[in-house]
């Protein structure tokens, strides 16, 4: 398998707080990788650096053989890397279908002039975008909700629409930031099933940030554990979860979390939400 995404020595600090240091990550084509770690470990910061929401202070990122360390987020998306957000960022005043159609604009949207003056170019582009969006909605089990406004949906459905919108941009690599947060057990099961299908059937490479260790363990073959901004462990899921330092981080999480909050080390999540 070839490596699709390679990050080397990524680091970033917010003010005096180091959110991520010497972060290495290699994601192979077809991988389903879990990125776990306690609150404030730097998971969302890592996603923000990979997708261009934040620029790293140091380190490099390569995607599909090209360096993208300084590329703008939209360039990375068109190169084939899209994401969802921990705090859902749907377009509330648009319908589910329109949200997903917006996801296909970057690749298939007609120009402004074509939009104003009409003609075959516009008609073809609009038909293609609608077709793609409807296919994604069917794939993600959202077809029945197509006409609903995004702000009228349940929490679990909103998460799924965000995934659908990211899929409409036709990624090779999908980064999911805590997709199961706030979902009930039934929604979680459906999400697990969807993620598995996208990876196994469609060959989509997926990196998953998740709090719920049980879910990650059942889904991902490989794990990367972050702790206090650095990689604590990585490798095959079962082996990583048995490592004493990983167990220690999770068992000691409560105390660890309290001290970290005092130090303001949640900066990574804060910065992620604020941009």
């Amino acid at each position: 398998m070839t490596e699709l995404l390679v990050a080397r020595g990524l680091g970033i600090a917010f003010g005096g707080v180091v959110a991520l240091k010497d972060f290495d990550l290699a994601v192979a084509e077809g991988d389903l990788l879990g990125l776990i770690g306690p609150n404030g470990a730097g998971k969302t910061t890592a996603f923000n650096l990979l997708t261009g929401v934040l620029r790293p202070d140091r380190g490099t990122i390569h995607f599909a053989g090209r360096e993208i360390t300084r590329a703008r987020p939209e360039r990375r998306a068109l190169a084939g890397m899209t994401r969802t957000f921990q705090n859902i960022r749907l377009f509330d005043e648009l319908t589910v279908l329109q949200n997903v159609m917006a996801g296909a604009h970057g690749r298939h949207g007609a120009s402004t002039l074509a939009a104003v003056f009409g003609g075959p170019v516009l008609r073809r582009s609009e038909a293609l975008i609608r077709e793609k969006a409807e296919a994604v909605l069917a794939r993600t089990g959202l077809a029945e909700l197509a006409g609903q406004r995004a702000d009228a949906l349940s929490y679990g459905d909103r998460r799924r629409v965000e995934i659908a919108r990211a899929l409409a941009a036709e990624p090779r690599l999908l980064l999911l930031d805590e997709p199961a947060a706030g979902m009930n057990d039934r929604e979680k099961a459906a999400l697990s099933e969807l993620v598995t299908r996208l990876n196994a059937d469609d060959g989509l490479t997926i990196v998953l940030v998740e709090h719920n260790v049980r879910m990650v363990a059942s889904l991902c073959r490989r794990l990367v554990v972050l702790h206090e901004g650095s990689v604590l462990a990585e490798g095959a899921t079962e082996r990583v979860l048995r490592q004493p330092e990983v167990v220690g981080v999770y068992l000691g999480r409560r105390r660890d979390h309290e001290t970290r909050q005092g130090a303001g080390a949640d900066a990574s999540e804060g910065a992620g939400g604020g941009c």
Partner: peptide, 19 residues
Amino acid sequence: SVGRAMLAVRENEMAARCF
């Protein structure tokens, strides 16, 4: 599509850029 993309920018610029 351009209009939808503009509205996407209005609703959440960074999310729109990320796809």
